[in-house]
């Protein structure tokens, strides 16, 4: 029974029909919820949210940064930092290469500084196209450095979480990144600096149980899956199907674990309003 959950469906390889040259690839996308066919430039313009049903497509790290920060203000930190393979596993090395190719990123986390409607902030964005944004040693290191930059630069911190959890291939060292990032947040707390945690689809496992849960203000995107244990694991444990909406953003809000649910199209202005309310030494 356990294995069935993990078994991949087998597909027959079919040669694709040659695509007509008049329609470049990726110009249309289908909504994951309402099946509406959307012009992809139109989707990008609407922050990757379906205009018909409000479904939030997953955004890449750089898309997120473009949606959030003022144009041309983003300065990336630790851009060249590459993941480590502490146990020299060939299997893991292969996965890292594949993830890099797929996402165009060196790691699952992009960090840096920039301005949001003029407010200077430190920003951390996790990208689920890179190994489901699992947190390994280097992802943890980049996040800890970003938090320290917020402490030192006396800037508010915004983290957009998305993650399947700890990166198992790095064993116990990945678990320790939870402690590392949380300990860094304690410094931010003591510095009296604002931390806004934005939970995006999906935020689970070790990331949900560390820095993502500790924002002064916690915002979730509509419909985002947020929780500690994976749904399959819970279903196996309790031997029953989980109800619709379990571990979704709306569920977390009604149980008191997020402050607000904000549609992505309203997110930048909401963040700006919160930042403005936390301005210090004025009025």
């Amino acid at each position: 029974m356990v294995l069935e959950f993990f078994r991949k469906q087998k597909y027959i390889a079919v040669q694709p029909e040659p695509v007509s040259r008049d329609i470049p690839e990726g110009i249309w996308v289908k909504c994951g919820r309402c099946n509406e066919i959307i012009f992809s430039k139109e989707l990008d313009k609407n922050c990757k949210v379906c205009r018909k049903c409000g479904f939030h497509f997953r955004a890449s790290a750089y898309e997120r940064i473009a949606m959030t920060l003022d144009e041309g203000t983003f300065k990336e930190m630790d851009v060249d930092m590459l993941p480590v393979n502490p146990f020299q596993s060939a299997e893991y090395e292969e996965k890292l290469q594949a993830a890099r190719k797929k996402s165009g990123l060196n790691e699952a986390v992009v960090t840096g500084e920039g301005a949001l409607q003029g407010f200077e902030v430190v920003i951390v964005v996790m990208d689920s196209t890179y190994m489901m944004a699992s947190m390994g040693t280097v992802a943890g290191e980049k996040i800890a450095r970003a938090i320290e930059a917020a402490v030192e630069g006396q800037k508010p911190l915004i983290i957009f979480s998305a993650s399947g959890g700890a990166r198992m291939q790095e064993g116990i060292l990945s678990l320790m990144q939870m402690a590392k990032t949380v300990a860094a947040l304690d410094k931010l707390e003591k510095a009296g600096q604002l931390y806004i945690s934005v939970l995006t689809d999906p935020t689970t496992g070790g990331v949900s149980a560390s820095f993502a849960a500790l924002g002064d203000i916690i915002i979730a995107e509509p419909g985002a899956l947020i929780g500690f244990a994976g749904q399959r694991v819970i279903e196996q444990t309790i031997r029953q199907k989980l109800p619709e909406g379990f571990q979704r953003a709306e569920f977390l809000k009604s149980h008191g674990f997020v402050d607000m649910i904000v549609a992505r199209t309203e997110l930048k202005s909401t963040l700006a309003k919160i930042l403005e309310l936390h301005l210090r030494g004025e009025n």
Binding site: A183, A212, A213, G227, F228
Partner: peptide
């Protein structure tokens, strides 16, 4: 999950 397993663990670490 309903009672915030993630939050409880994160707070304990903090």
């Amino acid at each position: 999950e309903e009672r915030g397993q993630s939050e409880a663990i994160a707070k304990s670490i903090l």
